[in-house]
């Protein structure tokens, strides 16, 4: 089984590389052993990667990055351990706390419960992509002003979820804010200040 897909890796360095080419090329490697009865010429061939590390191309905060990881590596671990983006936190590591929340094509997801390979072809936004200490996003600024954190471990997840909520619903009621942030837990119990920061940002438009 051609697991390492060398052709695809070579091509990823060549100019004019596209995801489509990658899939096509990767498909050739996999199809050698995956004899599949595919009819139409427009049907893509299946691909197989792993169990060894393969190179993935991830769109993170507006730039394309490559990581070489085994398929079992979660998006969260790829971001933190390979790309040094440590804003998203590993807390429960079971999808229950929201500390690892990032945006996938604008929608909040839990990066601990998604394989890095599944994030290929999507736009990933981490808390680092929303603003920086020098140039904070309106919601980041509101968190500081409202003193909406104690230990701060949950803060990146709440900021990402809150950003997604406000993008969809710029003028949420308190109940809508609670629903939108329901997947994030704050162990320190700073909820009322967090809700206030979101409300403040909404009021400012």
């Amino acid at each position: 089984m051609a697991r390492k897909l060398p052709a695809a890796e070579d091509q990823s360095r060549a100019p004019g590389f596209s995801r489509r080419n990658f899939l096509k090329t990767a498909g050739v490697g996999a199809a050698a052993s995956t004899v599949v009865g595919v009819g139409g010429a427009c049907t893509k061939e299946p691909t197989v990667i792993g169990p060894d590390a393969t190179t993935l191309r991830l769109r993170v905060n507006g730039t394309t990055q490559t990581v070489t990881v085994e398929p079992r590596v979660t998006l969260l671990n790829a971001l933190r351990n390979e790309l040094d983006l440590t804003g998203a936190k590993e807390v429960c590591n079971r999808g229950a706390c929201g500390g690892c929340t990032v945006l996938l094509d604008g929608d909040p997801i839990k990066a601990c419960m998604m394989l890095a390979a599944d994030a290929e072809g999507h736009e990933i936004t981490t808390v680092e992509g929303l603003g920086s200490p020098d140039e904070m996003s309106p919601l980041q600024k509101a968190f500081v002003e409202a003193d909406a954190l104690q230990c701060g471990f949950c803060t990146p997840g709440f900021v990402v979820s809150g950003t997604a909520l406000l993008a969809k619903n710029p003028d949420p009621t308190l109940d809508e804010i609670k629903d939108g942030l329901a997947g994030n837990l704050c162990r320190c119990g700073t909820y009322s200040r967090i809700f206030e920061a979101v409300q403040k940002t909404a009021r400012r438009g």
Binding site: T34, K44, P46, T47, V48, G50, P51, P71, R72, A117
Partner: peptide, 8 residues
């Protein structure tokens, strides 16, 4: 660890 196959 496992292989990850993608079907269309």
């Amino acid at each position: 660890n496992f292989e990850l196959a993608k079907a269309y």
